[in-house]
Design a protein around this nucleic acid. Structure first.
Length: 342
DNA sequence: AACTCGGGGGG
DNA sequence: CCCCCAGAGTT
């Protein structure tokens, strides 16, 4: 039995059932899932995906929606550029009127779609023979071919793509792509791979050499930066929170959060109160919550402030139910709410 | 090629 | 704590 036959047989038996893998494949579902899955694990996408599809069941409904509603449905998923890109993409494609493009080249020209997502949508939704190369597939290829440092450079990636394309001979390209990604996610894992379960184990050079975990080599990352912020958590008598739209150019731009700032060296409570658009009597600082944004490790000190009345607010400010804000936000809000209510 | 952008789960 | 994840866009 050939490599690709063994791979596909394994996939038929072992693949997880996921909401975007329903037959027949809906290109729109494939598109949304691929955007959500960029740098985001399957387990975290599944619940958000279902909610998103209920809210925006078709490309047309997505195009008609306000971008803030799309961001709201994306809240907590991270990498919010993806949501803005998806919304722009929907508007462009709907305005064009000819439906979602079916070739990788045309898909790649749309906002938020790069080489990986273009190949994924073209193959999974439209059957095109386009090999994908994501983190999972790169790891499988790097181990099978013992690529070592080569895996980090452009020629190595091209080699991996050729290897995937070779597996597509006489097979459904989309299934091959999906099977390799599934294999990387569930068997050929970064640490402690389950080689005995792998359909490619016999010819895998890294397994034969006994060091699969050394391929590909860990990528170097930017030195973590440790920051200390404070957040002014003003809660009204009705239990709503004072939120502010984060300014352009800042991290979490465009999302709605309690006003926050660098904690600096001064008095935390005083600094927090200074962020509010109206005077208050005082506040109390709570134990910090941890939040990370790419290379930043942030310790956020909540300063809880009780506000009797919901005073009128300037533009860019709002009173909102923190659990169902009805506004785009970050998971940082939920962390602050949990801390403040404990 | 390097840097930025969220966030959480597993070792 | 460190590591990685169905990457793309910008510089």
């Amino acid at each position: 039995m050939s490599k690709s036959r063994r791979l596909l047989a394994w996939y038929r038996d072992a693949a997880r059932e996921l909401p975007w893998r329903v037959e027949p494949r809906d290109p729109y579902r494939v598109l949304v899932s691929e955007l959500m899955l960029q740098q985001t694990q399957v387990d975290r996408v599944v619940p958000r995906f279902d909610a998103f599809m209920v809210r925006f069941p078709t490309l047309a409904t997505l195009a008609e929606a306000d971008v803030s509603k799309v961001l709201e449905a994306w809240s907590g998923l991270g990498y919010y550029r993806r949501a803005r890109s998806l919304h722009r993409l929907a508007r462009e494609v709907v305005a064009r009127g000819s439906g979602l493009p079916q070739t990788a080249a045309e898909l790649c020209a749309l906002p938020g779609i790069g080489p990986y997502t273009a190949a994924a949508v073209a193959s999974l939704a439209f059957g095109a023979a386009e090999p994908v190369l994501d983190g999972n597939v790169m790891r499988v290829a790097a181990r099978f071919l013992t690529m070592g440092e080569e895996a980090r450079r452009a020629p190595g990636r091209a080699k991996a793509l050729r290897w995937v394309r070779g597996l597509m001979e006489g097979a459904e390209p989309g299934r091959v792509n999906e099977a390799l990604m599934e294999l990387g996610a569930t068997v050929c894992t970064p640490r402690a791979p389950a080689c005995p379960l792998c359909p490619l184990r016999e010819e895998c050079r890294a397994r034969v050499e006994g060091r699969p975990e050394e391929h590909p080599p860990a990528r170097r990352v930017r030195e973590p930066e440790h920051l200390r912020w404070l957040a002014a958590c003003a809660v009204s008598g009705r239990g709503r929170w004072l939120l502010r739209r984060v300014e352009a150019g800042a991290v979490l731009r465009g999302l709605w959060l309690p006003p926050f700032a660098d904690a600096g060296d001064g008095d935390v409570v005083a600094t927090a109160l200074g962020l509010l658009p109206f005077p208050v009597d005082g506040g109390v600082s709570l134990p910090p919550v941890r939040h990370s944004i790419t290379y930043r490790r942030i310790s956020v000190v909540p300063v809880r402030v009780a506000v009797a009345r919901e005073l009128p607010l300037p533009d860019g400010w709002a009173w909102a139910d923190p659990l169902v804000p009805g506004l785009p936000t970050s998971s940082l809000l939920a962390k602050l709410v949990r801390r403040a209510n404990k």
